[in-house]
């Protein structure tokens, strides 16, 4: 399941729902990414997506990850719009028969989401606003899976 939403969400509730009713899955891994306040330098984040295209692009990488790691299932929920420090920006969960595939798939999906999924991120703070571009580390992280 892939979803973009403007409203805040509870990652714990998503994880509980994701685990429910699984009798063949041996491992579930989840990752929650939170907005950092950077000691007051960031008052909020603004996430922009390309409606339709962003979901489709994440869907393509999710399908590839599902095949590559042999996942039973996966979930990606990503915020758009204004996000306050402490709120969850992104939630990823993966389910597989054994733990290694679930860990690796979650790591892979997050590396992809950081630098290759169609999102644009702006930091707002007391000193104004600036667009955030992926760092060299983000690019290197994503390239590990190529």
């Amino acid at each position: 399941m892939i979803r973009l939403q403007a409203e805040p969400f509870d990652p714990g509730a998503l994880l509980t729902a994701f685990c429910e009713g699984r009798t063949q899955t041996g491992a579930v891994v989840s990752f929650s990414g939170l907005a950092r306040g950077e000691a007051g330098a960031v008052t909020d984040l603004e996430l922009e997506a390309y409606p339709g295209f962003t979901e489709a692009e994440i869907g393509r990488i999710a399908a590839a990850a599902q095949a590559r790691f042999g996942l039973d299932d996966l979930m990606v929920v990503h915020r758009i719009g204004r996000i306050a420090p402490g709120e969850t920006i992104v939630f990823v969960a993966t389910a597989s028969a054994h733990r290694r595939a679930a860990f690796e798939a979650a790591d892979h999906l997050m590396d992809y989401l950081k630098s290759r999924a169609p999102f644009w991120k702006k930091e707002h703070g007391p000193d104004g606003a600036r667009w955030i571009e992926p760092t060299e580390q983000d690019q290197a992280d994503a390239a590990r899976w190529d």
């Binding site: 295209f53 489709a56 989401l113 630098s115 999924a117 999102f119 644009w120 955030i132 992926p134």
Partner: peptide
Amino acid sequence: AVDQVLSRGDVSLDAVKEVAFMPPMSGG
């Protein structure tokens, strides 16, 4: 992206409805 498909190099816009220009992407 041309009609919501990533494009490489120059392409024809014949019958194309939508073109998007996108700076480096950054999510998460």
